[in-house]
Write a protein that binds this DNA or RNA. Structure first.
Length: 554
DNA sequence: CAGCGCTACCACACCCC
DNA sequence: GGTGTGGTAGCG
């Protein structure tokens, strides 16, 4: 009995000693001037989407963080709290050791970089020098592209290197300037590092990553303007000054980029000896997790700390500690509000979209896409045709035949066929819109209907859709040869519609930057290629139905 | 019970020479 | 052999 008691006592003493050595941290009690304290917000979720839903429902300025779980397989849970409360529990570094900021998609954010190379595979590489050269290059680019002034003193430089690996995070602290979101940051980074991609593949251009190849022109003068624009769009916050790119600046951009800078310092080898970039381009994806200042990866013990060669110093403050200042500065999506905040954008057209303008495309006479064609009004009209009697039909895909000015819509979920007077059971129908004759008719994929080459009666297009004919008339005022060619130029239909504001940019396969689009039509090489391939065109009045079916079935 | 968002890579089908 | 596609392992 006594022995049992002694054992218990010893156990309690041990527990007491443990608590003395590692006391429980006190509960967060926010102290603001207001007498009613704001409630503590500290919520954990298994799913990122749930965390973001909670953020939406929350009126406080809360953010999502990812915490790596004990299991070393990269599993994460999501924490929603304020920067202040997180720092309160985080600063002791006794817990929350492996935390990541979730950079929300579509959220305004800072310019940031993840830099790394294997030291063993690159014994000659001078990391600090490479960082300095990179910062210099980026600052020049910010000045040239956006007129933004900055220097190494505006770059928080965090180090997470080991004996094997050189590893840094750079977070730019620009004054009253931020990017629209981290995808735009990525586009900007890829754009300004473009000269380095050629170095990766040696003399051979074939090795350039495909997404790059379409985004960057080989002609510096045109390429710089392309896709980079200074947005006048405001964020949710009220932003005073708008920002526009003037022609003088454009001139300067063209001139400045005539000679590519030497970016050979960015090329490093990985452990298998392949050439890579010092800059990790994989960190600009939606909802990217970016390791927090003073956090380490799970299973590792190296945390991000202010680098020896960091030159950014936060503003001294009585109420906020230096560490807290560094922490707040390191947060990529912690953009300080200001009524003169400028939001920078950088668009790169997606490859799918660019295919239509690719000079290697053999089929310049057609363009195609899914769900929304470049003609918003016609899409709406077609949708109205296939939304009847509680059946919600949709546009599965579309094809546009330039010579015939024919839009062919593949319809889904709505199968009413005029030929059989009822809906087909397993075959889809098509709606064909003839812009030349301003009529529409129906055909279908049913083998029986196809066999008899069924085509419904023609019906006139409603007047609002015929608005497009006004554009056509306008084009016809210029009646020389080139104008005739232009109406058949594949670039014409969408860009003309755009300049008239008759389709919203989201309908042209998500979104596309106006600047880019106009640039594309000016790209002499592409236009020339398109025109050349149109020279053999002999103006067929009606496209054979078989051809339409063949294209649709591909 | 429970991560997320990609990209590189592979297998496979299809086409053309 | 070239090209497109669809699925997925694995990276960040």
């Amino acid at each position: 009995m006594k022995r049992k008691w002694e054992a218990k006592l010893k156990q309690i003493e041990e527990r007491a000693s443990l608590y003395e050595r590692k006391p429980l941290s006190s509960v967060y009690r926010p102290r603001l001037s207001k007498p009613e304290e704001p409630p503590s917000i500290w919520k954990l979720f298994h799913r990122q989407s749930q965390a973001f839903n909670f953020v939406k429902s929350c009126k406080e300025d809360v953010h999502v963080f990812a915490l790596e779980c004990k299991v070393g397989d990269g599993q994460r849970i999501y924490l929603v709290t304020t920067y202040t409360e997180l720092w309160y529990y985080y600063k002791s570094r006794r817990n929350l050791l492996h935390c990541y900021e979730v950079i929300p998609e579509n959220a305004v954010c800072k310019l940031y970089f993840d830099l790394e190379f294997n030291k063993l595979a690159n014994p000659e590489a001078d990391g600090k020098k490479m960082v300095a050269l990179l910062i210099e290059h980026v600052c020049k680019a910010l000045q040239e592209f956006y007129g933004v002034n900055c220097s190494a003193e505006d770059v928080l430089n965090l180090d997470s290197s080991t004996n094997e690996k050189f590893s840094r995070h750079l977070i730019f602290q620009l004054h009253d300037v931020a990017f629209k979101d981290n995808v735009h940051v990525g586009n900007f980074v890829k754009k300004i590092l473009q000269p380095a991609f050629h170095l990766l593949a040696g003399e051979d251009d074939d090795m350039i990553p495909e997404t790059m190849d379409h985004g960057f022109s080989h002609f510096p003068g045109t390429q710089v303007k392309q896709g980079i624009s200074l947005s006048e769009t405001s964020t949710d916050k009220d932003i005073g000054e708008s920002w526009s790119l003037n022609s003088e600046k454009l001139e300067r951009l063209g001139a400045a980029k005539q000679s590519s800078p030497d970016l050979s310092f960015l090329v490093v080898k990985n452990n298998t000896g392949e050439k890579h970039l010092f800059v990790d381009l994989g960190v600009y994806t939606r909802n990217r997790n970016f390791r927090l200042y003073k956090s380490s990866k799970i299973g590792k013990y190296v945390a991000l700390e202010v680098a020896e060669d960091n030159r950014f110093r936060p503003i001294q403050s009585k109420n906020v500690s230096m560490e807290n200042q560094y922490f707040l500065s390191s947060l990529v999506s912690n953009v300080r509000f200001s009524d003169t905040l400028r939001i920078l954008t950088c668009d790169i057209p997606q490859q799918k979209r660019f295919e239509y303008f690719n000079s290697t495309n053999t089929s310049v006479e057609t363009i195609e896409g899914f769900q929304c064609s470049p003609y918003f009004e016609i899409d709406q009209f077609v949708l109205s045709l296939v939304n009847k009697n509680d059946i919600k039909g949709g546009i599965r895909r579309w094809n546009y035949f330039f010579p015939e000015e024919l839009l062919v819509y593949d319809i889904c979920k709505y199968r009413w066929c005029e030929n059989i007077g009822r809906a087909h059971k397993s075959n889809n129908i098509m709606i064909l819109v003839d812009l030349k004759n301003e009529v529409w008719y129906q055909k279908c994929h049913d083998p029986v209907c196809k066999a008899e080459n069924f085509k419904s009666n023609c019906f006139p297009l409603p007047p609002e859709v015929c608005l497009l004919s006004l554009l056509k008339e306008e084009e016809e005022f210029t009646t020389d040869e080139t104008a005739n060619k232009e109406t058949r130029n594949p670039y014409e239909a969408p860009s003309r519609a755009l300049s008239k504001g008759t389709f919203s940019d989201v309908d042209w396969d998500n979104s596309i930057d106006d600047t880019y689009f106009l640039e594309a039509t000016e790209d002499a090489e592409l236009v020339e290629a398109a025109e050349n391939s149109l020279l053999g065109y002999d103006g067929v009045d009606e496209i054979p139905d078989e051809l339409i079916i063949e294209v649709l079935q591909e």
